[in-house]
Computed example of a mutant assay.
Amino acid sequence: MVKVHDVIPDIPVSDIDAARGFYEDFLGLGNEEFNLGWVARFTSAETGAHVQLVTEDATAPLIPVLSLKVDDIDAAYAEAVDRGFDIVHPLTTEEWGVTRFFVRDPDGNVINITAHRE
């Protein structure tokens, strides 16, 4: 069984800068953890709640609905393959430092399974 230690909603937006005020000011997610131009994470300094705003994906064919941080990315990938799940984006170590893959859930939602390798 996969051990998930963080769940981050991925929200499709047309323009991160245009959406910034709503998420930072109105929702109080004022800490921009990172911004790669096509994806940015906004977090509440008070509660730790966060969302990712996504305009596209730099290396994958689809925008996921969720990003799940897991403790063992290799085991998670092996289990997804063993269970015959639809892998939308293969296990890849991305240039921005994460290893991830995308898998489709039974209802067709695309989930980004991710981890930072130590």
Results as ranks from 00 to 15, higher is better:
Lys3Cys: 12
Lys3Phe: 15
Lys3Gly: 08
Val4Thr: 07
Val4Phe: 11
Val7Leu: 14
Val7Ser: 13
Val7Trp: 07
Ile8Glu: 15
Pro9Lys: 06
Pro9Thr: 03
Ile11Thr: 09
Ile16Cys: 07
Asp17Gln: 15
Ala19Gly: 04
Ala19Cys: 05
Gly21Gln: 13
Phe22Thr: 09
Phe22Gly: 00
Tyr23Leu: 03
Glu24Phe: 07
Glu24Lys: 10
Asp25Thr: 14
Phe26Lys: 13
Leu27Asn: 02
Gly28Asn: 09
Leu29His: 05
Gly30Pro: 01
Glu32Phe: 04
Glu33Ile: 04
Glu33Gln: 09
Phe34Trp: 08
Phe34Tyr: 15
Asn35Met: 01
Leu36Ser: 05
Trp38Ser: 12
Trp38Val: 12
Phe42Thr: 04
Phe42Asp: 04
Thr43Arg: 13
Thr43Phe: 02
Ser44Gly: 09
Ser44Tyr: 08
Ser44Met: 05
Ala45Asp: 15
Ala45Glu: 15
Glu46Ile: 14
Glu46Arg: 13
Gly48Thr: 07
Ala49Pro: 12
His50Tyr: 11
His50Pro: 09
His50Glu: 12
Leu53Thr: 06
Leu53Val: 05
Val54His: 11
Val54Ile: 12
Val54Thr: 14
Val54Lys: 10
Glu56Arg: 14
Ala58Gly: 11
Ala58Pro: 01
Thr59Ser: 14
Ala60Met: 10
Ala60Cys: 13
Pro61Glu: 04
Pro61Lys: 01
Ile63Ser: 10
Pro64Gly: 01
Pro64Arg: 01
Pro64Leu: 03
Val65Ile: 13
Leu66Thr: 04
Ser67Trp: 01
Ser67Gln: 10
Leu68Gln: 04
Lys69Cys: 09
Asp71Ser: 14
Asp71Gln: 11
Asp71Met: 09
Asp72Leu: 04
Asp72Ser: 03
Asp72Trp: 05
Asp74Met: 08
Ala76Arg: 02
Tyr77Lys: 10
Ala78Ser: 00
Ala80Gln: 04
Ala80Val: 06
Ala80Trp: 03
Asp82Gln: 11
Arg83Met: 09
Val88Lys: 09
Pro90Leu: 03
Leu91Arg: 11
Thr92Gly: 08
Thr93Ser: 14
Glu94Ser: 12
Glu95Val: 11
Trp96His: 08
Gly97Met: 07
Val98Ala: 09
Thr99Leu: 03
Arg104Asp: 06
Asp105Asn: 10
Asp105Cys: 05
Pro106Ala: 00
Pro106Tyr: 07
Asp107Cys: 13
Asp107Glu: 15
Gly108Glu: 02
Asn109His: 08
Val110Gly: 07
Ile111Lys: 00
Ile111Glu: 00
Ile111Met: 00
Asn112Tyr: 03
Asn112Gln: 02
Ile113Tyr: 08
Thr114Lys: 06
Thr114Val: 10
His116Cys: 11
Glu118Gln: 11
Glu118Ala: 14
Glu118Asn: 10
